[in-house]
Each structure stands twice: as structure tokens, then as C-alpha cells.
Design a protein around this nucleic acid. Structure first.
Length: 1094
RNA sequence: GGGCCUGUAGCUCAGUUGGUUAGAGCGUCCGCCUGAUAAGCGGGAGGUCCUGGGUUCAAAUCCCCGCAGGCCCA
């Protein structure tokens, strides 16, 4: 990114845009990366390095990228960049999830068609061609967004799930499952979308937004007994929220262990009329539901257990010729129809305790039907529409739309006992939002339950961040694993490579295109591993008949779950070698919503594949998985188009740049928690952290350029030879390196950010630079100055390296200027902590300094004595001699006294019995374990220790204490000593240290204070006059008071030096051509001054 | 209905294996600075650690019943 001379950009000013318009500055960096092909350069540099295997979870190329996609990508990119800097080879293969319903729906929309019949009419070949095209429109937006946010991915060679090679690998995987006998064809009741004409897998049902509240009918229906016993009609009461399933009723189920009653209850009467005036009826229902359903007007005639009810017959509620289907798994017996059957799942929590059975529309019903050899009626077909006219519903009606008509029909015929509406959570299609219905449909399954334990074992090997997602959330899901329905009766997807013989039912699975070609005796022109041409391939069956391919395509989650193999075209060509190198993954990261999605499918496929492919390492599929939370708006509401609270990433970047956004996302709270995205928070990052860092660099660079500082010069003093303050900064820098590496190694990105930010803002900028400014701009070049440059340069450079994974742009801008080695920051190694430079004593000494300074500032604030006014002395009391020793060093003294503008230490003592006294408090941590229940008494005894007793403890002696007749010896370990002021002077204390000021002012101090006041005023005027910082001036000053005149004379050197005055005089003669400026230094002291450049 | 997560200052969040003055940033109030800063610095005020039980000498922290929110599953 540098021109030919690497030193030409050394300490160059930051681009003008860096602070004001980070977007623009970052775009410039991007241009350089692109031009110099930095990613390729990095890949080349790490070509032979050990791999850190990262798998990119393929985004569905069907939606536009939003700010929530930025979160996961930031996490992924940060970890990958860090690993690269650790010297690892990180392949960043991009991937695209291109198959599936979302794509089909998008195309249907664009073609203005809807549903399977219209797709067939349009032509599957043309339709799939459209699908293939459609994914690319969004791909470009994704690529642009990814590039802009600095997400380094290899877009040149991405894996694309629809490409022939990818599909072929998926076939290989499916074939392996089939070979292992884990694939079976079944008929299962699944949530079904009539609109999309396909069943939904359990993880599709797991998509957000599937369950929505719906107001459904809640009806109780009379099923009249087949044999009526008396004058009063008798019926079973059954409850349902799906009236549309009633025409398909084949049985009623009761729980064998529940008691049921035969009850006499008045027929409903118009309002005002007496109950029973219309006569009575007899109904059956669970005893436990009596009150809820019949109220108090019921007379129980008989109570029997559910098991006794079995086999009783009733009359169907709809008389119509309902189509019947062949269940396959059993042989239906028509005489079993319309009887009471037993089922354990029936509860008395709601309804009547009698459940209407329509096997094709309920999973439980299906099982019950199988157990009782019931026939299967199907009034509603796979498109969710009625197949016949029945009870007010017409052929072609959408299932839910028929509810009203059916209920009305039942009402007319006196079969509707009660009708209400109920709000309940109901599943909807995750993409087209149509209400689903349960429907028995033929499907292909993988028997994942057969290797459930292995999936659990593999999962246990993964380091989950945070752990509970893997151990509990995914762990529970695995414990309750059910077989994976992998087939979809759709068009745009990997075709299932399974051929079935129409006659003998034999199955044949195919694992490669070549095998397919061989079996079919050639492939048609334009064959592309997709429907519809593959459907034309017909194989000979051993029985002499022909085998046809099953029409289904595979669940697109199977595509993404096969990504570890298919991305390298395993096991074809060099795919084995490449897959071996990239399996298992060291790291994946996606949103929490992928728990039952990609995280699961990778495991479901991987825990099988690793065992059957000898080339692959067994035991684990992915070793580390970092989970990130959902992105909410700033009030914690989920972002949605309808609420209009979506944050467009491009807008956000234009405003603040991506580094600020990345840093904000990484550092604000734990990544796996839902994240409230607040632009105010981004602005804060920009101002507080990125801004401070840039200012720090500006400061350094401005003076380093002037002085021609060369970081590589042998003349620079070695770290050990620099003053303490420099060694402190270097020591803190090295400690930071250790902290950040530790955090990063644990995937604690937020912790790493916090450490860096704290260091930059508090220590590097607000302490080191502020306290050492004048070393940079005063005096001649020399070892002291060069030591300061070297220390600050080191700190800034290390920060640029440490923050590079998180803030790739600003770090690059800084690195280019700080180190100028002609190479990107992202190609550098992560710094190693140099323990030789770590001085823990110096660091803790500085901690004490900061504490004392804070207390001193608080005292000054209260006393109203501004820091410009020097004070005579600072007194201090501490509990620990050790603290005093640390504070009394020249280094600490200088820092404190200079920072607080105090002439000298006053008294410094551990205690003197006059101004303060020692107090002891029990050390609960040590004593608690030893004393247990006596702790409270001991604490009280210790709190009342005398000065002498405390002193004994502190000196290492032991004080005997009587506790419940026993003597306990309290030693130094057992007490926490504090100091407490016993004076009416104003003091500040943190319990361990007491600070107080000698605020008495004499003329000398006041004079110096005034002189400093003058300096401040003169410098303000310099700035007002727009003088350059190094501009020398002539200065004339005249004081109104005697004390001020004395200050002007006495401190002429100070004033001259601090204001860069080369021609200084006190007197009433103004400079030629200059006007006097009058200033009020304080109510008693007025100053006249004039200045001019020299 | 079940599982997981979260609840700490006005806001956004830290808070180690339980240990006695619960922290930071922002905001607010007060003040300061002007030779890195389209800025910055300092000092105050501000808390029922969601409620209620329990375990313990000791609970923001561990356990239980709730409440509220989120995610996932039914």
C-alpha cells in the first residue's frame, strides 16, 4: 500500500477523512487491498503453514443482506484474521446456498405464477433455469457488502450448492447413507404447506416466525351413537380446532385410563326460556371435563373407564363419498371404521376427553390408525384443497376456508354442540407464510436416530461459545432426535439419487454421475444434475421391469450440511486430499438460530461421514463454534420490514464507517446475547476509542516527523535505559499483549476489545501522552526524547497489530504510517508479550499513583483551588508500609506532585495516632473458612480492636480473641486494615490511603499561581491570533497589583519558556504597533499584555 | 405447556472459584483545559443487583417458586 520508498509514508498525517468521513477513508484502504491483492498475498505467505480450518456457513442467496448479517461476518472475519496473524493458513472459501424453496418462491413471484401445477405448466426446465439465474442477482449484493465490511472471503472460488460437482458430492453422501441402510421411504404425517406443495422438515418448522397466533374455531361436535337407546338422542362429544378434518373422520379416541360419564343434560333453549323446556339429550365425555363442558345442568347416569368404551360404534357426521388412500404401512379394515378406539395420548386438559381421529391430518392420529388398522379418508388433498363436495364445503375450497360452511352444516343438522373461537399458536410456512396443515405424505428419511449417541459424542468434543448452546440447547435436541425427513417434493434442489422399480419396489441408489450414465446407458443432451432431465433416466431392474427416479429433491439443509465434502468435490478428483486438509473444522460461527439448522445438519452428516470415510478424521466435526445473538433495534425489538426499524448496513457505514460498527458489535456485551443495535453506541465507539487513538497517533506523528524520529535507529535508548514512565508504558503495552492474546485464544472477542480500548483511552492517551506532552515538544533531541518516541511508537504499533482483526481498516492506516515496512498489517504476526519488559512493581506503583491523584483532585475540587495554583504540601497516611515505599520513589512522587501541582510531600506515614487511626476489619475470605458459625462474633471482636492490637496484627503478631470460651488467634492474614481520619481537616480516603492537602498559601505560592495564570492567558491569545505552535513571540506584560508585578518578574523564565517568548519585558511600554489587551486573572489581579510574532 | 438465555445506575453493559464501600462508558449536574483532539479532562449526584423464599458464618453470584423479556420447541 506504499509507494516504492517504504519510508516515504513514515509518520504521514492521517488521511483527512479518517476522522470526519471514515467511510471514505476505508474505501481508500479497500481500493489498495484490491489493487495489491492483499488477500492473495496473505494466502501465498501462508501457503505451507499449518491450517486453521474455517467453514463458511453459506448464506441463502435469496434475501438482501442486513445489519444482522454483519454481526456473524464480523465475528468470523475477526477470528480468521487473528489466526492468520498467528501464522496459520486460513482458507476463506466463500459459499452460497442456492437451492430450495426460497429461491423457487422468488422465481414464482417474478413469473407471476404460484403453486406446483402452474410450475409444471410453465415447464420445470425453464423454471429451474430461472432459479439458477435468480440466485446471482443477490449474490452480487452480498459480495459487495462482504467486501465493504472487510470480510475477507475468497469469492473467486466459492462453493455453490447447485453446481454439478457440488451436487455430485451430495449424491455421494446420500449414497453412503443408503449403502449403510440408513435411508428409508416412509409415509409420515408432517407439517405440510399446500401452497408450496411440500412437507416441511423439523428444522424448517424451527425457523423464526413459523408459529404465529391464529384465531381458529373451537368446536364441540355430537357424534351420535350408532344405536340409539331411548327417546332422548345419545352422542359422544368430541372437540376439535380443525372442523375441516371432520369429513375425514374415521374414529374417536379415548384414554383407557380415564373415566368417562354418560350424562343427561338439557337441550339448548332460546334466551329467557326455561332450561329443559326443549327436552334433554344424553352425551358422553370425560368425567374430568363434565363441569367445563356441561356446566351444572348435568345428571350423571353412568361412569365407565375409557377401556370399556372401546369398540362402541357411532354414526359418521358427514355422509359423503370421501376418497380413501392406501396407508402402506398397514392393511385397513373397513369394518373398524367409526368406532371408539383407545389412545394413551388423549388428555383431559381441554376438550371433552374424546378426540376425533383423522389419520392423514395428525401424527398421533396416524399412529392410532396404524394400531387399529383403520382406513384413511382424505377429503383434503396435498394442495390443501377439498377433493369432493361435502357438507357445505365445495371441491377446491382451501381447507381452512371450509370451516365456516362445515360448522354451519353441522349446526343445521343439530350436530354442533358448541362453537367458539380460540387464539392459539399455529405453524405457518417459513417462507410463503401460508398456514400449514398436518398431512400424511410419502417421504425419504435418514435414520439419524440410529447414530444419535455418536452425534452426542461428537458434539461433546466441540468447544461451544457459550457452552450452554451446545451442551443444553443442541444437546437436548440431539437427545430427542427424530429421523430426518430429507425429501422435498419440489423442483429446484439436489435430485435424490434414488431409483425405485415400479413393479417389484426394488431401490437403487447412485453415488456419481458416471454411474448414472452407465446405468442409464448415456445421458441426455444438456444434462445438468438437476430436474427435469434426470427424471428421464430409466434403469433396468433385476426383475425385468424399469426403475424410475423418485421425484423428490433433497432438503436444502442437507446441501449445507454436506458442505465440508461437497465444497471440495469429495471424493472425486483431488477432492479427497483437499477435504482431508479441511476436515474437521477448527472454527465455525453463526447465529443462535442455526442451532437446529446448520449446526445440526453439519453434525448429522459429519458424525456419519467421518465414520464411513477412512480418509476423514473421526471424533469431531467442528472443534470450536462461536454463536452470536439476534440483532434487535435499539429498543430491543426485533428488526422487521413492517416495523420499519431495519438498519441498512450501507447507511450505517456511510455515517460511521465499518470499523466503528465492527468494534461496537464485538465489544458491546456478550456476542451470543441478543444485540441491540444503536447508532448512538457506534458513535460513542468512534469518538471515545477510534477518535482518541487517531488523536494519539496525530500527536505522535506530528512531533516524530519534526524530530526525524527513526524507530529502527540504534541511537534510541534501550527500553531498560528509559525513564520509569516510559518503562511503565512499555510494560503496560506488553501486559496488554498478553491479555488480548489470552482473550482471543478463548474466542472472547469482547474481552479483547475492552482491554485494548481501556489501554488506549486511559493509559496511552489520557495518562502517558497527557503527562509527557512537553517531552515531545520541548528542548533538543536527545536520549530522553527519543526514549519517549520509541515507547509511544511501540505502544501505538502494538495496538495497531492487536486491533487489526477487529478494526481492519484503521489498523491498516496506522500500521502503514507507523511501521512502513511496505506490507499490510494483516500479514504481520501477532505480537508476543515480551516478559523482560514487564515490570509489575512499576505497574502497581502507577496504580497507587492514580489512586492518590484521584483523591488529590477531589480535594482540590472541594477546596476550590484550581490546579494552576501550586500548593505547599500533600500529606498521606497508608495502612501498608509497602504502599508508602512505592509512593515515595522518585518516579511516583514526581508523577503525583507534578500532576497535582504540589511542591512537596508533607508527612508520609503509616499512622501517627493523631490525624488518623487504624481500624481492623475481619478478612472474611480467610477467617470464614476457619471459623464458620463464629464468624459474626469474630468480626465484631476484630472491629473493636484497639490501635495497639491492630498494630500487632499488622506487624505479623497474633492477637488472642475469646470466642465461646475458646481462644482464637488472629494474625495478619485475618484482618484487613484500614485507616480512618480523626481530624476535622478535609481528607479523602479509599480506606487504605488517606490524603489531605496543606492549603495554606504564601506570597510565593500565589505569585507562582499568577505566573501560571499568565501563561495560560498568553497561550489562549496565541491560539486566537492563529500562531503556529513553534512560533516565537515578543511579549510585554504589565501588572496592576504589586503581587502580580512580582510574579511577572520573578517567574519571567517560566512565562517565557511556556509561551515561546524570546523577547520578554515587564513594563508599561507596549510593543510597537501593538495594542494592550486587558485580562482579569482574578478579582484582585488585572493584567495588561501585548504580543507579536518574532 | 416444555427447554435454553437474559433481568445490575436514566441508557448500554462489566462484575473471577460465594467474602463485607457493586464498577465502566454514555447521559445529567458542577468545574477545568486550550501547543494531540471537528475536541478533551476532572469531580459530583445517581443502585430494593426483577420479586419472594432457601442454602450458608457470608449471596448480585448457588438452589427453588414466581414476574418480565428474548430465542427455540410443542
Amino acid at each position: 500500500m506504499t509507494p516504492s520508498d517504504p519510508t516515504s509514508s513514515r509518520f504521514a498525517p492521517l488521511p483527512a477523512d479518517a476522522a470526519k468521513n471514515p467511510d471514505k477513508a476505508e474505501l481508500a484502504v479497500l481500493a489498495v487491498w484490491r489493487e495489491r491483492k492483499v488477500l492473495a498475498e496473505l494466502e501465498a505467505a501462508r501457503k505451507d503453514a499449518p491450517a486453521f480450518v474455517f467453514w463458511e456457513g453459506p448464506p441463502t442467496a435469496n434475501g438482501r443482506p442486513g445489519i444482522h448479517h454483519v454481526v456473524a461476518r464480523t465475528v468470523k472475519d475477526t477470528v480468521c484474521r487473528y489466526q492468520s496473524m498467528l501464522g496459520k493458513r486460513v482458507d476463506r472459501k466463500a459459499g452460497w446456498d442456492t437451492h430450495g424453496l426460497p429461491v423457487e418462491l422468488e422465481v414464482e413471484k417474478s413469473l407471476g405464477i404460484s403453486g406446483k401445477p402452474q410450475i409444471e405448466e410453465y415447464g420445470v426446465a425453464a423454471f429451474n433455469a430461472k432459479c439458477r439465474e435468480s440466485v446471482w442477482t443477490y449474490r452480487k449484493e452480498w459480495e459487495e457488502m462482504s467486501e465493504r465490511i472487510g470480510y475477507w472471503l475468497d469469492y473467486e472460488k466459492p462453493y455453490v450448492t447447485y453446481e454439478d460437482d457440488y451436487v455430485e458430492s451430495v449424491w455421494h453422501v446420500l449414497n453412503r447413507f443408503h449403502e449403510a441402510g440408513l435411508v428409508y421411504q416412509g409415509q409420515r404425517v408432517v407439517p405440510f404447506c399446500g401452497r408450496c406443495g411440500t412437507g416441511l422438515s423439523s428444522h424448517e418448522i424451527g425457523q423464526p416466525g413459523v408459529y404465529q397466533d391464529l384465531l381458529d374455531p373451537s368446536v364441540t361436535v355430537r357424534f351420535p351413537l350408532a344405536q340409539q337407546s331411548g327417546a332422548e338422542s345419545e352422542s359422544f362429544l368430541a372437540w376439535t380446532t380443525t372442523p375441516w378434518t371432520l369429513p375425514s373422520n374415521v374414529a374417536l379416541a379415548v384414554n383407557p385410563k380415564v373415566d368417562y360419564v354418560r350424562a343427561r343434560t338439557p337441550l339448548p333453549v332460546p334466551k329467557g326460556e326455561e332450561k329443559g323446556s326443549k327436552g334433554y339429550e344424553i352425551v358422553w365425555l370425560a368425567k374430568a371435563r363434565l363441569g367445563a363442558v356441561l356446566g351444572e345442568n348435568a345428571e350423571v347416569l353412568e361412569t365407565v373407564s375409557g377401556s370399556e368404551l372401546a369398540g362402541r360404534a357411532y354414526a359418521p357426521v358427514f355422509e359423503a363419498d370421501i376418497p380413501e388412500i392406501e396407508p402402506g404401512a398397514w392393511t385397513p379394515n373397513n369394518t373398524n371404521k367409526w368406532h371408539i378406539v383407545l389412545a394413551d395420548y388423549v388428555t383431559t386438559e381441554d376438550g371433552t376427553g374424546i378426540v376425533h381421529q383423522a389419520p392423514t391430518y395428525g401424527a398421533d392420529d396416524w399412529i392410532t390408525a396404524k394400531e387399529n388398522n383403520l382406513p384413511v379418508l382424505r377429503a383434503v388433498g396435498p394442495e390443501g384443497r377439498f377433493l369432493v363436495d361435502v357438507g357445505g364445503a365445495s371441491k377446491g375450497d382451501l381447507f381452512k376456508d371450509a370451516d365456516e360452511a362445515l360448522m354451519e352444516d353441522l349446526k343445521q343438522r343439530g350436530l354442533l354442540f358448541k362453537k367458539a373461537r380460540e387464539n392459539h399458536s399455529y405453524p405457518h410456512c417459513w417462507r410463503c407464510n401460508t398456514a400449514l396443515f398436518y398431512f400424511a405424505t410419502p417421504a425419504w428419511y435418514i435414520r439419524t436416530t440410529s447414530y444419535k449417541d455418536r452425534m452426542i459424542a461428537y458434539n461433546a468434543k466441540c468447544n461451544w461459545v457459550p457452552p450452554e448452546v451446545g451442551q443444553k440447547r443442541l444437546g437436548d435436541w440431539l437427545e430427542n432426535n427424530i429421523d430426518w425427513n430429507i425429501s422435498r417434493d419440489r423442483y429446484w434442489g439436489t435430485p435424490l439419487p434414488f431409483w425405485v422399480c415400479g413393479d417389484c419396489g426394488a431401490e437403487r441408489s447412485v453415488g456419481s454421475k458416471a454411474e448414472m450414465e452407465r446405468l442409464a446407458g448415456g445421458l441426455p443432451e444438456g444434462f445438468d444434475n438437476h430436474r427435469p432431465l434426470i427424471d428421464e433416466l430409466v434403469f433396468d431392474c433385476e426383475c425385468g421391469s424399469k426403475m424410475q427416479r423418485t421425484k423428490a429433491v433433497v432438503d436444502c439443509w442437507f446441501d449445507s450440511g454436506s458442505m465440508p465434502y461437497a465444497q471440495h468435490h469429495f471424493p472425486f478428483g483431488d477432492g479427497v486430499e483437499r477435504t482431508k486438509d479441511q476436515f474437521p473444522a477448527d472454527f465455525i460461527a453463526e447465529g443462535l438460530d442455526q442451532t437446529r439448522g446448520w449446526f445440526y445438519t453439519l453434525l448429522a452428516v459429519g458424525a456419519f461421514m467421518a465414520e464411513v470415510e477412512p480418509e476423514l478424521e473421526k471424533g469431531v466435526v467442528y472443534k470450536n463454534c462461536a454463536v452470536n445473538g439476534l440483532v434487535l433495534d435499539k429498543s430491543g425489538v426485533k428488526m422487521s420490514k413492517s416495523l420499519g426499524n431495519i438498519v441498512n448496513p450501507w447507511d450505517a457505514m456511510k455515517e460511521h464507517g465499518i470499523d466503528a460498527i465492527r468494534w461496537y458489535m464485538l465489544s458491546s456485551g456478550a456476542p451470543w446475547l441478543p444485540k441491540r443495535f444503536d447508532m448512538g453506541g457506534v458513535l460513542e465507539v468512534r469518538r471515545r476509542f477510534l477518535g482518541t487513538l487517531q488523536n494519539s497517533y496525530r500527536f505522535f506523528a506530528e512531533y516524530a516527523r519534526i524530530d526525524g524520529f527513526d524507530p529502527d535507529s540504534k541511537e534510541n535508548p534501550a527500553t531498560a535505559d528509559r525513564p520509569e514512565i516510559d518503562r511503565w508504558l512499555v510494560s503496560r503495552t506488553e501486559t496488554l499483549v498478553g491479555d488480548v492474546r489470552r482473550a482471543m485464544d478463548l474466542f472472547d472477542l469482547a474481552g479483547a476489545c475492552r482491554s485494548i480500548e481501556g489501554f488506549v483511552v486511559d493509559e496511552l492517551s489520557n495518562w502517558y501522552i497527557r503527562r509527557n506532552r512537553r517531552r515531545f515538544w520541548k528542548g533538543e533531541s536527545g536520549p530522553d526524547k527519543m526514549g519517549a518516541y520509541a515507547s509511544l511508537h511501540h505502544a501505538l504499533s502494538q495496538v495497531a497489530l492487536l486491533m487489526a482483526p477487529m478494526a481492519p481498516f484503521l489498523s491498516e492506516i496506522l500500521w502503514e504510517r507507523l511501521c512502513s515496512n511496505g506490507s499490510s498489517v494483516h500479514l504481520q504476526p501477532v505480537p508476543q508479550r515480551n516478559s523482560a519488559w514487564v515490570d509489575e512493581q512499576l505497574e502497581s506503583s502507577m496504580q497507587l499513583v492514580v489512586r492518590v491523584v484521584e483523591m488529590g483532585r477531589a480535594l482540590r475540587e472541594r477546596s476550590g483551588l484550581r490546579v494552576r495554583q501550586p500548593l505547599k504540601a500533600l500529606h498521606l497516611r497508608a495502612t501498608e508500609q509497602e504502599s508508602l515505599d512505592l509512593l515515595a520513589t522518585g518516579f511516583a512522587s514526581e508523577q503525583i506532585l507534578d500532576e497535582l501541582n504540589i511542591k512537596a510531600w508533607g508527612s508520609l506515614a503509616t499512622d501517627d495516632g493523631q490525624l488518623c487511626q487504624l481500624k481492623a476489619k475481619a478478612n472474611f475470605k480467610t477467617l470464614g473458612k476457619r471459623l464458620g458459625k463464629q464468624m459474626k462474633k469474630a468480626a465484631a471482636a476484630i472491629a473493636s480492636f484497639t490501635q495497639e492490637q491492630v498494630a500487632i496484627c499488622r506487624a505479623g503478631g497474633e492477637v488472642p480473641v475469646e470466642l465461646d470460651g475458646a481462644t482464637v488467634f488472629i494474625g495478619a492474614q485475618d484482618v484487613i486494615v484500614s485507616v480512618e481520619a480523626s481530624t476535622d481537616m478535609d481528607v479523602e480516603s479509599d480506606g487504605q490511603i488517606i490524603v489531605f492537602l496543606d492549603t495554606e498559601l504564601d506570597d510565593a505560592l500565589i505569585s507562582e499561581g499568577l505566573a501560571r495564570e499568565v501563561v495560560s492567558r498568553v497561550n489562549s491569545l496565541r491560539k486566537e491570533a492563529g500562531l503556529a505552535v513553534e512560533q516565537r513571540i515578543a511579549l510585554r506584560v504589565a501588572g496592576g497589583s504589586e503581587l502580580l508585578r512580582r510574579a511577572l518578574t520573578e517567574h519571567d523564565a517560566l512565562i517565557s519558556e511556556e509561551t515561546l517568548t524570546t523577547d520578554y519585558a515587564v513594563g508599561e511600554t507596549a510593543l510597537e504597533g501593538c495594542e494592550w489587551t486587558e485580562v482579569e486573572l482574578s478579582p484582585e489581579h488585572d493584567l495588561k499584555l501585548c504580543l507579536a510574532p518574532r
